[in-house]
Design a binder for these strands. Structure first.
Lengths: 219, 219
DNA sequence: GTCTATAGCTTGATAGAC
DNA sequence: GTCTATCAAGCTATAGAC
């Protein structure tokens, strides 16, 4: 049998490597983590990385793609539900379909999703290969949301829609990064990891922004 | 004479090291750049880093602080002007005072400011030490803006103001990161480095968000 | 599949000459 | 101030045994 092709239960060592790598990359970035950091913590040999993923980069790509597929499916489903309800849908409902699946995962019991989103925050803001990487894994799905927003905002300028999405993306990924800066800045009023409090505000914040930019067509 | 203490013209090699390091760190991150990458490009010896900055970390800190001081002074001045005009000032004017000095620098002829802001984007989203670092260099100034916003939004919930600032920060720094993702996503309609187009939309986008979150007090 | 062993290179730091 | 020279440690990748 080929190495767990299509298998439901991949080799436990392979899985261990991915999961440890995910956490360490999220904490310290691609270049801040060595294969030895990963494999020693996983209790396996370095050579297994070559065997399963061919290289450090291969491991990184595999781990990025793994959850992207899951997340994209959930977001596509959420959008579909919203549009079934009414099309064009309210802007706020579309934004919510984009962010709610993330919130659900991030507050779940599984801490590895949190690590994954923290990693995405760094990728999204990486000037060297971040744009290309985010595009590869997420743009097909994002296009579905852009289409829905275009319908929800008739007469909107194309560039306006894309820039507003850009602002949403920045606000959203800084949230994942969970840097605890806000804890210090606010003197304890806010907590970086209080994702429910953030989500509750992010959706109306961004929706108001979209409507202000894309609906005032007398500029 | 002590090494250029208080001098207006620091040693040209020291300056070269800082400027090259700034660009390389911005492109590849702290761990993606070696001292040899920096010093070989600067045409100086590695040992000079130890002499001038004591360590790689020392170099990084020095370069971060250098422009933070300049930027903070310009932002403080911009805010002062706005508040002189009217206090409380319109939210949009306050946001503009926060972002306009950045825009002015980023579109200037000096490309090293652009590198600096790209670096800030990565620092701001770094989960390990990003929060602490951003707080150290920027929170004293940010507090002045929070105060102005609080006056401009009477009755606003404290947490709401901080979270809205957080969204602003995320949207703003992703913009600096200049990842060119939007170029591909928009099929060429938008350009990642068209900072004037972005700024023109960012200010009203964020202002609308602030007003929506902080002024609807019947939630 | 998993490991041992190691090649071949790069890293940050620094002691000491000039 | 600047450089030479070097250290000890780390790195990724991989050939080959089991």
């Amino acid at each position: 049998m080929k190495r767990d092709a299509g298998s439901k239960a991949p080799n436990p060592r392979k899985k261990r490597i991915i999961e440890i790598a995910e956490r360490l990359f999220a904490q310290r970035g691609f270049n801040g983590v060595s294969l030895r950091d990963i494999t020693s913590e996983a209790g396996v040999d370095v050579a297994l990385v070559k065997y399963y993923f061919d290289s450090k980069q291969g491991l990184f790509d595999a781990l990025l793609k793994r959850r992207a597929d899951v997340l994209n499916a959930e977001r596509a489903e959420a959008l579909k539900m919203v549009l079934q309800n009414s099309d064009p849908a309210p802007v706020e409902d579309i934004i919510n379909a984009f962010t709610q699946p993330i919130l659900t995962r991030i507050v779940s019991d599984d801490p590895s999703w949190r690590a994954y989103f923290g990693l995405l925050a760094q990728v999204n803001n990486n000037p060297e290969w971040g744009g290309k990487t985010m595009s590869r894994y997420f743009d097909p799905l994002v296009r579905q949301f852009i289409d829905a927003l275009r319908n929800a905002l008739p007469g909107a300028d194309e560039a306006d829609i894309y820039w507003c999405y850009h602002f949403l993306s920045g606000a959203l990924t800084l949230t994942f990064a969970d840097t605890r800066r806000i804890d210090a800045l606010s003197g304890g009023v806010c907590h970086s990891s209080d994702f429910e409090a953030i989500h509750q505000r992010l959706v109306p914040f961004v929706s108001a922004g979209f409507q202000n930019i894309c609906q005032n067509k007398g500029k």
